[in-house]
Amino acid sequence: MDRIRRNKYVIFALVFPGLIIYAFAVLYPIFKSFYYGMTDWKGIGEFNIIGLENYKKVIFEDKVFVTSLINAAVLAICTVLIQHPIAMFFAIIVDKLGGKLESFFRAVLFIPCVISIVVTSKMWVNVFNSSYGLLNKFLDAVHLGFLKHDWLGDQHVALYSVVFVIMWQGFGYAFLIYYSGIKGIPEELFEAGRIDGANSWQQFINITYPMLKPVILVNVSIAITSSLKQMEPIYLMTNGGPGTKTQFVANYLYTQAFTAQKYGYANAIAVVFVVICLITTVVVQKIFKPRDI
């Protein structure tokens, strides 16, 4: 029996098909990118190997690359400090509603998450449109016209508009995770709290928050790593503009390869990007590792 579990052929048959696909489409391209990253290939014709030149440039000289990372940080911070508290707050409220109302709100709040990012991004472009868009019309209607903006074109606002859309789209996930975290807290704890005369805030501080901590940590680390990887909303809404104000790494490397025709350089960005994602994930996990689990 132990023999069966050590059977090399069986192990191979179980693991190999998955591994080969994974290696082919995920690992291999990264090695390939590393190679192209060492060339001056313009995406056309022959090229020269130029060593680590591109990598040095990406890391030490490229200002747009830095902007992209800063934007990712802004997104991560906004997600953690704005989206998550709201999501948690509503998770707590919805949890208390009970019955049909509870399942209704839970279901509806997740709707944006099941719609394709292409649809939602394009939809928001239209909502932000200043001639017929929903947002400016709404502001006019409630006599807040002075708040009207060129939401995706104004250099001071564009990034936050993009950040808002990404948070809007991801809200359902954050909400649902907190919601199920709260559902996982044994009802007796609240019961005991109530008997002790704890008010809502005390209940939150003394029961919900500590019990929810592992979920929060997981949620926050997901938020940080996924902030780094955003591309589609940017590609579809601003393409990094105005200028490079809303550029994100993934979109930047895409435009460097296919618009600026710096294919070698774009591959170098891709590799640095992967390394940054790996480091961030490891660091985030180190910091946020739930100690008691």
């Binding site: 998955g18 591994l19 994974y22 489409a25 995920v26 291999y28 391209p29 990264i30 390939k32 990118s33 192209y36 790593t225 780094l228 990887k229 591309m231 790494v249 993934a250 979109n251 490397l253 895409y254 390869a257 294919y263 774009a266 591959n267 891709a270 590799v271 990007f273 992967v274 994602c277 790996l278 961030t280 994930t281």
Partner: peptide, 15 residues
């Protein structure tokens, strides 16, 4: 395999 979690799709588009 779990490493794949952290690898951004977009870095592999070109290759």
């Amino acid at each position: 395999v779990l490493l794949g979690f952290m690898i951004p799709i977009h870095a592999t588009l070109l290759s």
